[in-house]
């Protein structure tokens, strides 16, 4: 059974249509990558998927339960227990240190005693390479560290589904590669499913089982989907000029040469 089914999604703000007719499914245990230029609506789509923004049109089901439309409140609440979210900005709680941030979901949703919670939260921080920053406040760390801490917080309850909005933007290449490895490990060991927004070509090819590419000019009047499929297949076969430009982009130095 697919873990996410989205059909006919559209989002309008005022008289601007960000995207329309966006449909896709994410199979359980898959890393599903969302691609597209900045401002094409990736974060907006993610907000719809996690139930923060009711889509103007269309339906979303998570693990078979519809989370949009009238009467879907309880289904959404149930679905939220099964996914973790990392926002593009990190969205760490500024009043808590990193350990406190990761411990909060454990405190709210488990009966673990405090020392166990702390141990588990430290382990999650270690998984994202922040073992020695547990006592720092969000204001005292870099953007890349904030993102990793946010991933640790999203992992706290070991959810079967994770939404990551640009997890590797602003990370150095080594840390970004470690993050990719973490994603693959979770997918292969635990069967965790992922929806990941990313621009890193190497990362997309390394971790993406399937991808969806959005573009602002997919329709004459709105953005939407311009390509869907496994990233390797798109790279090899797509004829769409925007998709080609994305996969064939070359370093400026090479272009100049």
């Amino acid at each position: 059974m697919p873990i996410i089914e989205a059909s006919g999604l559209a989002q309008r703000f005022g008289d601007r249509t960000i995207f329309r007719d966006v449909s896709f499914t994410v199979a359980a245990g898959q890393v599903f990558v969302l691609l597209g230029g900045s401002g094409c609506g990736k974060s907006t789509l993610m907000r719809q998927l996690v139930g923060l923004l009711p889509p103007t049109e269309g339906e979303i089901a998570i693990a078979g339960a519809r989370i949009t439309g009238p009467g879907a409140g309880p289904a959404l609440a149930a679905a939220r227990r099964r996914f973790g979210v990392m926002f593009q900005s990190g969205a760490l709680f500024g009043s808590l240190d990193l350990l406190g941030n990761v411990m909060l979901p454990l405190e709210m949703f488990t009966d673990l005693p405090r020392p166990d919670r702390a141990a588990r939260a430290s382990a999650k921080l270690a998984e994202v390479g922040l073992a020695d920053a547990a006592g720092r406040l969000p204001a005292e760390i870099s953007g890349g560290m904030a993102k990793r801490a946010a991933i640790a917080r999203a992992l706290a309850l070991d959810p079967p589904l994770l939404f990551l909005d640009e997890p590797s933007a602003g990370l150095d290449p080594i840390t970004a590669a470690e993050l990719d490895r973490l994603i693959l490990t979770l997918r292969d060991r635990r069967g965790t499913s992922f929806v990941v927004v990313t621009h890193e070509l190497a990362s997309i090819l390394a971790i993406g089982d399937a991808c969806l590419m959005l573009d602002r000019n997919a329709w004459p009047d709105a953005g939407g989907v311009i390509a869907a499929g496994p990233p390797r297949v798109l790279k090899a076969e797509s004829r769409h000029p925007v998709v080609r430009a994305f996969f064939d982009r070359t370093p400026l130095a090479a272009e100049a040469a």
């Binding site: 907000r47 609440a77 939220r80 979210v85 969205a91 760490l92 979901p105 709210m108 949703f109």
Partner: peptide
């Protein structure tokens, strides 16, 4: 938003 998606 982070609180809300955690179900808090």
């Amino acid at each position: 938003d982070a609180l809300e998606v955690m179900g808090l």
